[in-house]
Design a protein around this nucleic acid. Structure first.
Length: 272
DNA sequence: GCGATCCTGGCC
DNA sequence: GGCCAGGATCGC
């Protein structure tokens, strides 16, 4: 479900639980736990304090006292919801953290494409190992971006951006939006794209993600932050989901194609 | 690199 | 019933 702007919005919506202690941690029998065990999670989380809540790409990182980090990825359908004590857990609740400030933080994920994991502080973790730079990091420069892109000459622009290695955090919505902003066809390969054109992609990545965060992310169906608030970015999307209509700014007609089994929306008349 | 695969739910 | 969905991993 969520891409970087949605995950970042969720992260910000959780700031008030920083400093609270996890009194109890419960997991469903089918919780999508990877690279650790439910017993380890329960032991490490119980009575730990949440020191900070960070983000890397689409991963949320709950830094805990006692040198552990809870890693949460929301996959396609994952949500983090807070509720008061004594409330009934919704269907598909796979993790429930009872916090010292009378909040229950629930991880709800019908499709279970998400991930719950644990890392020792400062240690490399397999989930985070191959993630590319953050879009707003100082080391994410045009030159670094070009260098990463040139390693994949055969990939289409769409697949290159969807892959988390070139830059972290883009998903289907924002790849479509970035390529419209850069006026490049998603089907074009990296190898057939000039440095100047890739520089437009670089600029578009930063512009589109910044704008999306400002708008609190895109709520298409079920995305909400931890308070249940929806994002406003849907009303700003130029091409995503608009086949048969014009781009939001009225520039050109939008079509939908399928690339590697995933939908892509773009405006062929102005994206070449 | 590419397709198949992991899941449930909503909509036609 | 079939198709589609904000994702990522794992095999040929």
């Amino acid at each position: 479900m969520p891409e970087l702007p949605e995950v970042e919005t969720i992260r910000r919506s959780l700031q008030d639980v920083v400093g609270s202690t996890i009194n109890a941690a419960e997991f469903s029998p089918v919780a999508p736990i990877k690279h650790t065990s439910v017993d380890t999670l329960r032991t490490q989380l119980t009575n730990a304090r949440i020191e900070t809540i960070g983000r890397r790409g689409k991963y949320l990182l709950f830094s805990l006292s006692r040198d552990a980090t809870l890693i949460v990825h929301l996959g396609m359908s994952g949500r983090l919801r807070r509720a008061g004590p004594e409330t009934v857990a919704p269907r598909h609740t796979h993790m429930a953290l009872t916090l010292s400030n009378d909040t229950i933080l629930r991880y709800v994920d019908p499709r279970r494409f998400g991930v719950i994991s644990l890392a020792a502080s400062g240690q490399a973790h397999p989930l985070l190992h191959n993630i590319g730079p953050e879009f707003d990091a100082t080391d994410f420069t045009v030159d670094a971006f070009l260098q990463q892109c040139r390693r994949h000459p055969k990939l289409s622009l769409k697949m290159a951006l969807l892959h988390q290695g070139v830059v972290a955090g883009l998903g289907n919505i924002y790849v479509c939006e970035v390529l419209y902003e850069a006026r490049l066809a998603p089907t074009r390969t990296i190898g057939d794209t000039s440095d100047d054109a890739l520089a437009r992609v670089f600029a578009a990545i930063r512009a589109v993600l910044s704008r999306a965060i400002t708008h609190g992310g895109t709520s298409l169906r079920d995305y909400e932050d931890s308070w249940g608030n929806k994002g406003n970015m849907k009303s700003q999307l130029q091409v995503y989901g608009r086949e048969g209509q014009s781009t939001l700014d009225g520039t050109a007609e939008v079509v939908r194609i399928v690339q590697h089994g995933r939908s892509t929306w773009y405006a062929p008349a102005v994206q070449q």
